[in-house]
């Protein structure tokens, strides 16, 4: 036996017989499901389904189901990878401290393994059952969110959610590519809407959770640049979003229902962003009265405009994509019966 090989083997005499007994995880199905971020997954399913319908291409229902399943599982896998890596900062924030990894129910290694296995299965099945383009975009999305955003951007720059938002904006492109095998300009228009929607959405949230992010050392915009600069940027992004929101009307993607939703929604969004710009949301204010019921975050009186914009931003995006889904879904049902 060579010296190198001998050195690589454990020394029986040095074996630690006092090592702790093997830890058996008490984590159940629900804990592993929580690792996949089900609420994020539901948004991903919805936007991917919209992209799939907007392609206006015949696709077998089984293939469509597998495509949406792969996108869902892929999104969940990147969520698991994110939770595995971010367990240290998750433990410091109210919103995330009860996640399975910081709570000690699932180890970081198990969460990572779970995420990697699901990623591999989802990409592999997407390639086998749907097409290579959608599998490649899915792989890129998982790597971008799980590595580029989680490992690098999130802790490095206040532009973290701006750049990282690309991962969350890709599902409609994925759905479109799954149905048609290509990703035309209209698919990227849907990507752009979610991409531009992400900063005002998350910055509105971070305006009333600043202390949590600061405690965890996450360089969110209000922590680094202050509330005033954040409110200004939210307003600028909101104008861009409202304009981009009506763009599908000129590319043949949106119809009359979409026109109503995008125009009314866009005006409401900009109005709320203007109200936020003129407010003191996110500024340090004296402690107000305690809320009557238990809430996750105590929203200061001045920051309620930020919470309103956060809530409306969800309805706005949902409205835009629901309008497209209805218009293209009705067209697909009328054209080809069972085939989408």
């Amino acid at each position: 036996m060579s010296d190198a090989l001998a050195a690589s083997l454990p020394n029986p005499a040095a074996t630690d017989t006092t090592a702790k007994p093997m830890q058996i995880s008490p984590a159940g199905f629900g804990d592993y499901l929580a690792l996949l971020k089900p609420r994020v997954m539901s948004l991903v399913v919805f936007t991917a389904l919209t992209g799939l319908f907007c392609a206006d291409q015949p696709i077998h229902p089984v293939t469509a189901f597998i495509a949406i399943l792969c996108i869902t599982v892929g999104a969940g896998a990147s969520g698991a990878l994110n939770m595995a890596y971010d367990a240290d900062i998750d433990a410091l924030m109210k919103r995330t401290k009860n996640r399975p990894v910081p709570k000690g129910l699932i180890s970081r290694a198990d969460a990572t393994g779970f995420g990697v296995v699901l990623s591999l299965f989802s990409v592999m099945l997407m390639d086998l059952a749907v097409n290579t383009l959608s599998a490649a975009i899915l792989a890129f999305t998982i790597i971008f969110y799980g590595l580029v955003y989680t490992v690098w951007l999130k802790r490095a720059t206040p532009q973290n959610i701006v750049i990282g938002g690309a991962a969350g904006a890709l599902p409609p492109v994925l759905g479109w590519a799954a149905a048609s095998g290509h990703a035309p300009l209209n698919a990227w228009l849907l990507f752009a809407i979610i991409f531009i929607w992400t900063p005002p959405h998350f910055w509105a949230l971070s305006l009333y959770t600043t202390t949590d992010y600061a405690k965890a050392g996450v360089p969110m915009m209000p922590v680094v640049k202050g509330a005033k600069s954040t409110r200004r940027q939210i307003f600028a992004y909101s104008i861009a979003l409202a304009l981009l929101g009506v763009a599908p009307l000129f590319t043949g993607l949106g119809g009359p229902l979409y026109a109503v939703v995008s125009i009314i929604g866009g005006v409401a969004f900009v109005a709320l962003a203007l109200r936020l710009l003129l407010s003191q949301a996110g500024e340090k204010t004296p402690e107000g009265p305690q809320p009557k019921r238990e809430t996750l975050y105590k929203v200061a009186e001045g920051a309620k405009v930020a919470r309103d914009l956060f809530a409306v931003s969800i309805f706005y995006l949902f409205g835009l994509f629901a309008a497209l889904l209805i218009e293209h879904g009705v067209r697909a049902a009328g054209l080809s019966g069972l085939h989408l």
């Binding site: 074996t15 017989t17 090592a19 007994p21 093997m22 058996i24 995880s25 008490p26 984590a27 159940g28 199905f29 592993y32």
Partner: peptide, 24 residues
């Protein structure tokens, strides 16, 4: 080290953890 528990529960995981493991 080798498990030191009883043959029916060699790792001493207890009924709750055993049930969770079976479900997984």
């Amino acid at each position: 080290p080798p498990p030191k528990g009883s043959p029916s529960d060699p790792f001493g995981e207890g009924p709750v953890a055993a049930k969770a493991r079976r479900n997984r």
